[in-house]
Design a protein around this nucleic acid. Structure first.
Length: 850
RNA sequence: GCCCUCGUGGUGAAAUUGGUAGACACAAAGGACUUAAAAUCCUUGCCGCUUGCGGAGUGCCAGUUCGAGUCUGGCCGAGGGCACCA
């Protein structure tokens, strides 16, 4: 028998789908649509196993929905702006455009080999002016809506390279390339006013019932809504400062107020610009470590002013400090210190010998309750607080105190968000130019629509200090309404590019606007979005914001949530290997004879240390090249393996044995297909056996039922198990005892339900049996799901004692008689009485004996 | 520190509503076929009594229930997110 030649067949079917334009999506209002989208890749050079997993999951879903009769939109594009292209171009003296284009072609070739059901006619690339033109239009729309603004903000500045660094380019406080200590520098930058939508973005989460809870809580925490109160404290002292505003979530602890602390960047710090001691203090503040954790655990330090803050409730005067732990960009950059009930305030008070007055006591404590090292943040009763005494903290006391403060005009209720506005300026060449120019008065002017797109200049020298666009003199000079202006040289954060690409896929060729109303109305929202959990916060939140920002004040567009369903897949992992010198080794460079001891390939004396299994990464060299796997085993086998073993939301472990097993499955299946095909087309007449026919039809309908359910729930690993069950069943089936029409009809159903996962071999097998192209997802014939004979569990006192075979719908009494007459239970009934019977229909009987 | 998720054989895992724990696969061991190897097929979770049967068993401790991997409370462990957010 001939082996399955996957190379020929996979090529044959990919050509066939391509020629028939099978995956071209066309707007058809009479058909129900399904928009399946996977996160588009960054064109880094080659696809990796993470892409294979992501796009296989999406492809299985798309093909399944298509078979179910949906009008499926399944597009692909390229997130092609960004730093790696600029760096690679710098290193190799290339044009980023050429580098990117070469990578795209290479990766497109690789993706096509996987046999994905993608409508390639809708391909988009964010670095193309055909794409970013509309992004510039959107930017100006948002500008008009007041959702874009400019303000001074800090950046990471590399003093040697004279360039702005992204956070991930700062390694242990130093520039990744120069190694220089990174400075904070203030620059004028553009922002999207995402905080305007804080509440909406939070509320919207509740409606996203097809999103993982994990992602929703992450977004919730990121938005970080808190309920509290702003309080205006009167100030006395040697400066022209009359009051300082603070934000607090615990106004009920106001009687425990013992200091007021402001951020070193607080506006009142301008009075200390000449004060050497203050400047030294500010310097000390910035010296604490760079990791988030070390910042959080840094020692609390303060700088005492000569100001006094007055407690509005009892007119007590307390000192005012600058403190390193107060953040300028949350609340008002000033806090009221209540050491007894806040750990940070307590640490600070202990260090500077400030009063610690407890005002909340746990229910079981009396008025002698004291605080020393550990702040009390739990519930209890208010005390030491005059007219607030005996209120229940926190629920009753907070709302009651806010009422009193509001009545006295001292403070008012306020809701705060942790979310900050989105800084979108990047001082880089390889990004979307911001369509703004500045006149002589340095006013920001919009570039007129007819001048869009503002294209990136070609053939630019990248080996400059700072942003290469700064040096593009010709490009920078522009006339707006006859006025000489200078272009904005910042480009947009690449997260902006990916915040609306799902809209562009609906109308990729529209040259009037970013999308057309008709098409967006039909295709949006995305029914299923699939991608890595690493985008759980930023990309998804930005996309949700951008969609809302477009919807804002726009009657033509009324979508607020772009992604109806979200699925976050796990990573692809592999063991890591190191040689004796501690250098990483690729799996290809490693060998083992027994699966325990590893050594360098071809050199059994050089031992290899096996490390933990980690997400595949170039730096650890634990990568497997998808293209090579497709060449060796075929796309179907790779698709089969990447879905097997682990549920798609969890990390999956790459294993060579697993890959091989998937390959063997394809080969085994081909053999059994040959015998079934031969039987179907044979002319010899055999004796039919009704029971075999029944058994086959029962199995077919059961497996359709199982696979359909598993597809709907993303239990793709179980589907692979179902395939093995199917193979095991077919290999034992007496196919020559089945009527040919029943055999081919049911076998075709089986091939159809397998086709989303292994489309090439399934198409070939289907094609060998029937000669038409259209196949639909098979319906289940319910009569084959009904069981005639049942095995019912017999439990005695809740413990399984055996199984009993009976007809369906046997009633309790009949069952009891059957059990009593069965010899194997006799010993249990000895000297016992049945005092209770629990009967779960068609499933189990539990007899309680005494 | 706060928030979230998850703990099932040697391994990856499966198990509608609480109702036969371990489907399916990988690995290992034993066996069949073979002159031999490869390939293929069969058997095997643990403990006890050599069969048949009995017992324990889903991180640990308790609870609810006729019945708990599944529900509740507490503890332990692993992973992830946020991080001085007042």
């Amino acid at each position: 028998m001939e082996r399955y030649n996957f190379k020929d067949f996979e090529q044959k079917w990919q050509n066939n789908w391509n020629e028939k334009k099978l995956f071209r999506a066309k707007l058809d209002k009479n058909k129900k649509k399904f928009y399946c989208l996977e996160m588009f890749p960054y064109p880094s050079g080659n696809i990796h196993m993470g892409h294979v997993r992501n796009y296989t999951i999406g492809d299985v879903l798309s093909r399944y929905k298509k078979l179910q009769g949906f009008n499926v939109l399944h597009p692909m594009g390229w997130d092609s702006f960004g730093l790696p292209a600029e760096n690679a171009a710098k290193q190799n003296n290339l044009d980023p455009k050429i580098w990117t284009q070469t990578n795209i072609e290479r990766m497109k070739f690789q993706l096509k080999k996987l046999g994905l059901s993608i409508d390639w006619e809708r391909e988009i690339s964010t670095c193309s002016p055909d794409y970013y033109k509309y992004q510039q239009i959107f930017f100006l729309e948002l500008f008009d809506k007041g959702l874009v603004y400019r303000k001074e903000s800090y950046v990471n500045w590399d003093p040697i390279d004279q360039t702005v660094l992204a956070n991930e380019q700062v390694i242990e406080g130093k520039g990744w390339r120069s190694g220089a200590i990174v400075e904070r520098k203030k620059l004028n930058q553009w922002f999207f006013n995402i905080t305007k939508f804080s509440q909406e973005l939070l509320d919207g989460l509740d409606k996203l019932d097809q999103w993982p809870n994990k992602v929703k809580t992450m977004q919730k925490n990121w938005i970080g809504r808190s309920f509290g109160c702003e309080i205006n404290f009167k100030i006395e002292g040697d400066l022209p400062v009359n009051e300082i505003k603070c934000y607090t979530t615990r106004p009920d602890t106001l009687f425990g107020f013992s200091f007021l602390a402001v951020s070193p960047d607080h506006p009142i710090s301008t009075f200390y610009n000449e004060n050497k001691e203050f400047l030294k203090f500010k310097d000390d503040c910035s010296k604490t470590g760079t990791t988030e954790e070390s910042i959080a655990q840094a020692e609390k330090i303060g700088f005492k002013t000569n100001l006094l803050a007055i407690n509005p409730l009892n007119n007590k005067k307390v000192p005012v400090y600058f403190a390193n732990f107060v953040l300028m960009d949350y609340g008002f950059g000033a806090i009221f210190g209540c050491p007894a009930h806040d750990q940070r305030d307590l640490d600070f008070a202990n260090k500077y010998n400030l009063e610690i007055l407890p005002v909340v006591k746990p229910e079981n404590e009396d008025n002698t309750f004291k605080i020393t090292k550990l702040a009390y943040t739990g519930p209890g009763l208010i005390f030491n607080s005059d007219f607030l005494n005996d209120l229940k903290a926190p629920n009753e006391s907070i709302s009651e105190t806010i009422k009193i403060l509001e009545n006295k005009n001292i403070g008012k209720k306020k809701i705060n968000f942790r979310l900050k506005d989105w800084g979108i300026s990047r001082q880089r060449y390889w990004g979307c130019p911001i369509p703004i120019a500045y006149n002589k008065q340095n006013e920001a002017l919009k570039i007129p629509l007819e001048s869009l797109p503002i294209k990136l200049p070609d053939k630019i020298n990248l080996n400059t200090t700072g942003n290469p666009l700064e040096h593009a003199k010709e490009w920078k000079n522009i006339k707006i309404n006859g006025e000489d202006c200078v272009m904005e040289t910042d480009t947009l954060d690449t997260f902006v590019d990916s915040s609306w690409y799902f809209l562009r896929f609906c109308s990729p060729k529209n040259d009037k606007y970013g999308f057309s109303k008709d098409e967006v109305d039909y295709w949006m929202p995305v029914d299923q979005y699939i991608g890595g959990v690493e985008h759980a916060i930023l990309h998804l939140l930005y996309s949700r914001f951008f969609t809302r920002a477009l919807e804002n004040k726009n009657n033509e567009f009324n979508i607020t949530e772009p992604f109806l369903g979200l699925f976050t897949q796990g990573m692809v992992c592999h063991e890591t290997y190191k040689n004796e010198d501690g250098a990483w080794l690729n799996p290809k460079e490693v060998e083992s004879s027994n699966g325990k001891d590893y050594f360098v390939k071809g050199n059994p004396k050089k031992r290899v240390k096996v490390g933990t299994s980690e997400s595949m990464s170039k730096s650890k060299k634990n990568t497997i090249d998808p293209e090579e796997m497709i060449t060796n085993y075929g796309a179907d086998a790779v698709r089969l393996f990447i879905l097997s073993d682990s549920p798609p939301e969890k990390d999956v472990q790459w294993s060579d044995q697993g890959m091989l097993a998937a390959y063997k499955f394809i080969q085994k299946f081909w053999l059994i297909h040959q015998s079934i095909k031969n039987e179907i087309f044979s002319t010899n007449e055999n004796k039919m056996e009704n029971t075999v026919e029944m058994e086959f039809q029962k199995f077919t309908n059961e497996i359709i039922d199982k696979i359909t359910k598993n597809l709907n729930n993303f239990h793709y690993n179980v589907i692979i198990a179902n395939f093995h069950e199917t193979y095991n069943f077919l290999s034992k089936l007496k196919i020559n005892k089945i009527k040919k029409s029943i055999l081919s009809e049911n076998y075709l159903k089986i091939l159809t339900i397998m086709s989303p996962v292994i489309p090439h071999i399934a198409s070939e097998c289907i094609n060998q049996i029937q000669n038409k192209d259209e196949t639909n997802w098979p319906n289940i014939d319910k009569k084959f799901l009904e069981k005639k004979k049942l095995q019912i569990v017999v439990q005695l006192n809740g413990k399984k004692r055996g199984l009993i075979t009976c007809d369906a719908n046997t009633d309790e009494d009949q069952l009891l008689t059957l059990i009593k007459s069965d010899g194997q239970y006799k010993k249990f009934f000895k000297d016992m009485k049945i005092i209770k019977t629990i009967y779960v229909k068609d499933r189990l009987v539990n007899l309680i004996l005494k």
